[in-house]
Design a protein around this nucleic acid. Structure first.
Lengths: 136, 136
DNA sequence: TTCTTGACCTGGACTATGTCCATTGTAGGA
DNA sequence: TCCTACAATGGACATAGTCCAGGTCAAGAA
């Protein structure tokens, strides 16, 4: 069983075949699948898994901080399992390919106090856009 | 007639009462309405305006570079008329309030060449998140 | 191993957001 | 004023996501 499932079981998560399959589908680097893509791949391994279960499981993984929800295009949300290494995203404007990237410096530091309007700012999300090598 | 409508007419845009109303609804600073909100306000001034027309007009304004499309929450897209002054967004994680902000420095410069994976990077979009004064 | 139970899964209805298209209307030029 | 190409309408359709009543099963207890 994967380290992820072990961690979740340790936190009282009941490990079912459905949850295992969703976790397996999300393994890897630069993985940014939509819920429907996750469902399509999960169905290959477990034909009777339902869409609702995939949505529920993804939502739980997000709440537990194991997966990050990304919406780079205003269409379907995407799920990024690379949650334990802070990073930003680089998106191809033409084909939609997404890469995880690590900018230098702390983007939070670039927002001066007088531009914070009294907010308590705690997170920054950066999306770089351009053309990937294949599309350029 | 507003400067915006003059500009658009000069570019061959036919000015109709529907388009005028949509443009008027979008006037102001820190305006970030969803398409349905724009429609709701437009209906107050022009009761028979249709949803399709509001979507079409917003899409045209975006293509013409007069309005920016923002999706800060993965739900409905929002339309920001502040298109001629580069800026980023600060969002309250609880109530969703959005402010336009101007960070210092050039966020593009923070992505080193070896983190660009051969992409031609041309744009950056930054979303700061936190709690607004009322929600904190 | 079997039992028990509450958490989990399912399928389908439902909501929200956005797109498409055939028909009708009209802005702006001749 | 009249014409016509462009725009608006409204309803069907598409996509993404949520909710729920009822059936199922993982994991601890004995």
């Amino acid at each position: 069983m994967s380290a992820l499932l072990e961690r979740l079981r340790g936190r009282g998560w009941r490990v079912t075949s459905q949850r295992r399959v969703v976790a397996e589908v999300l393994e890897g680097d630069h993985v940014h699948l939509t819920a429907d893509e996750v469902h399509a791949r999960a169905v290959q391994r477990l034909p009777e898994i339902s869409r609702a279960t995939v949505y529920n499981t993804l939502g739980e993984l997000v709440s537990l901080g194991e997966v990050i929800e990304v919406s780079t295009d205003g269409r379907a949300k995407r799920y990024d399992p690379n949650a334990h290494h802070p990073h930003q995203h680089l998106v191809c404007s033409r084909c939609g390919t997404i890469r995880d990237v690590r900018p230098t410096g702390d983007p939070l530091a670039d927002l001066p106090a007088q531009e914070r309007f009294g907010f308590t700012v705690s997170e920054v999300e950066v999306t770089y856009r351009g053309l990937c090598p294949s599309c350029a």
